[in-house]
Amino acid sequence: MVVQRAECRPAVNESYMKLKKLQLEELKKPLRLSQQLEKAITTNYKPVSNHTYNVEYEKKKKEEGKRARAEKPKVLEMLFSAFEKHQYYNIKDLVEITKQPVIYLKEILREIGVYNPRGPHKSTWELKPEYRHYQEEENEEEKMV
């Protein structure tokens, strides 16, 4: 609720006029200026068609060649030795450990392993209970005690 009304006007003197003149000059200045350069700038970065790390990766991949399927018992041995170290593995890690094609590795894993689609160990594989050696050892220790 408005109770009282007041109007204010500046005292028109020399200092006020100088202030207004400076404000008008600032508004007249362009926001952007163009400059003429004396020499060309050579520090621009040009696009690279293939970066060095891509070239190194391709070279490494060619040296390795395509992954050849090893015999199933040998792959099973590698998988069991890996699962002795850790209970859960990502498919990428298993491919790196066994050096086998993903499709072939998934075929074998479906036989001996269980895929965890959700939960704390999401997108990982673990051995089926009948293939787990670490649980049997714990049970034997419990029986002895």
Score class of each variant (00 low, 15 high):
Met1Asp: 11
Arg5Tyr: 11
Ala6Glu: 10
Ala6Phe: 10
Glu7His: 14
Glu7Tyr: 15
Cys8Pro: 00
Arg9Pro: 00
Ala11Cys: 09
Ala11Gly: 09
Glu14His: 13
Glu14Pro: 00
Ser15Lys: 14
Tyr16Val: 09
Leu19Ile: 02
Lys21Ile: 06
Leu24Cys: 12
Glu25Gln: 15
Glu25Tyr: 08
Glu26Lys: 15
Lys28Met: 10
Lys29Asn: 02
Leu31Ile: 07
Leu31Ala: 08
Leu33Gly: 04
Ser34Phe: 08
Gln35Leu: 15
Glu38Ile: 07
Lys39Tyr: 14
Lys39Trp: 06
Thr43Cys: 07
Val48Cys: 01
Ser49Pro: 03
Asn50Gln: 05
His51Ala: 14
Thr52Gln: 14
Tyr53Lys: 06
Asn54Pro: 01
Asn54Trp: 12
Val55Lys: 13
Val55Leu: 15
Glu56Cys: 06
Tyr57Glu: 14
Glu58Ala: 11
Lys60Ala: 15
Lys61Gln: 13
Glu63Phe: 09
Glu64Gly: 06
Ala68Asn: 03
Ala70Pro: 02
Lys72Trp: 07
Lys72Asp: 05
Lys72Ile: 13
Lys72Leu: 08
Pro73Lys: 06
Val75Pro: 01
Met78Asp: 11
Ala82Glu: 03
Glu84Gly: 05
Lys85Gly: 00
Lys85Glu: 10
Lys85Cys: 00
Gln87Ile: 04
Ile91Thr: 02
Lys92Phe: 02
Asp93Leu: 03
Asp93Arg: 07
Leu94His: 00
Thr98Glu: 05
Pro101Phe: 06
Val102Ser: 10
Ile103Glu: 12
Ile103Val: 13
Glu107Met: 11
Glu107Pro: 02
Leu109Asn: 00
Arg110Met: 04
Glu111Leu: 07
Gly113His: 09
Gly113Met: 07
Val114Lys: 10
Val114Asn: 04
Val114Cys: 07
Asn116Met: 10
Asn116Gln: 08
Pro117Val: 05
Pro117Ala: 09
Gly119Thr: 01
Gly119Val: 02
Pro120Ala: 13
His121Ile: 01
His121Tyr: 13
Lys122Ile: 09
Lys122Gln: 14
Trp125Cys: 08
Glu126Lys: 03
Pro129Lys: 02
Glu130Pro: 01
Glu130Cys: 01
Tyr131Asp: 00
His133Leu: 09
Gln135Phe: 03
Glu136His: 03
Glu137Leu: 07
Glu138Ile: 06
Asn139His: 06
Asn139Thr: 07
Glu140Ile: 05
Glu140Met: 08
Glu141Tyr: 05
Glu141Pro: 00
Glu142Phe: 05
Val145Pro: 02
